[in-house]
């Protein structure tokens, strides 16, 4: 079950999207090593009627268009990393990422709607799309803003060897 092959096209069976499934969608754009700040990554691969990410973006980096079932596409070179879309997405399907944030460290800012919240500086366990522990991470900051409407955004650094795999942390 844990091999990559067995999880091909498993979103509708396992509940979580395969990295290989993501790679087949043009709308999934993972920022590479050239990016010098975290930018938004969107994992929205089903045509559902929804566009708050586009509406929330203050710099028009996310495009959906008039047909709201079109998949959102982001231009990461325009994205400022403000995280408004991260909080606006009803599917919690957006996070910010930067591959080389520090020496061998990647950066993620993900939505988190559980209690308790982690503390700044805390060591946490980063998790993949199946909720499995991947590596340890360090919480850089926890943002709770009225603009995010009760969705906290956790910023954390973690081993860049797991850059693409990590999407969240194991709940406390």
């Amino acid at each position: 079950m844990s091999s990559t092959e067995s999880r091909e096209k498993r979103l509708k069976v396992d509940g979580a999207v395969q990295i290989s499934e993501l790679h087949q969608t043009a709308e999934y754009i993972l920022p590479d090593e050239r990016f010098t700040k975290p930018v938004a990554v969107i994992e929205c691969i089903e045509s559902i009627p929804c566009n708050p990410c586009e509406t929330a973006c203050p710099v028009n980096a996310i495009v959906i268009g008039d047909d709201i079932t079109t998949l959102p596409k982001i231009d990461p070179t325009i994205c400022t990393g403000c995280a408004l879309c991260v909080a606006a997405c009803p599917g919690l399907a957006i996070y910010l990422k930067q591959q080389h944030w520090g020496p061998s460290l990647s950066y993620i800012a993900f939505p988190y709607e559980y209690l308790p919240l982690p503390q700044k500086g805390a060591e946490v366990t980063m998790a993949n799309r199946w909720g499995e522990a991947v590596c340890s991470g360090t919480v850089i900051k926890v943002i709770k803003s009225s603009r995010f409407d009760r969705t906290a955004i956790i910023h954390a650094s973690y081993d860049s060897a797991f850059y693409e795999e990590v999407v969240t942390m194991v709940r406390l």
Binding site: K12, I48, A93, R171
Partner: peptide
């Protein structure tokens, strides 16, 4: 666990992904 009698999950993928990454297993 979340069990589903059909061979595939019914809800939006973004919803199933939310609970899956919290460690909840699906049984189709």
């Amino acid at each position: 666990a979340i069990v589903e009698a059909a061979p595939t999950l019914g809800g939006y993928g973004v919803h199933t992904a939310k609970v899956r990454r919290a460690g909840v297993p699906f049984y189709t």
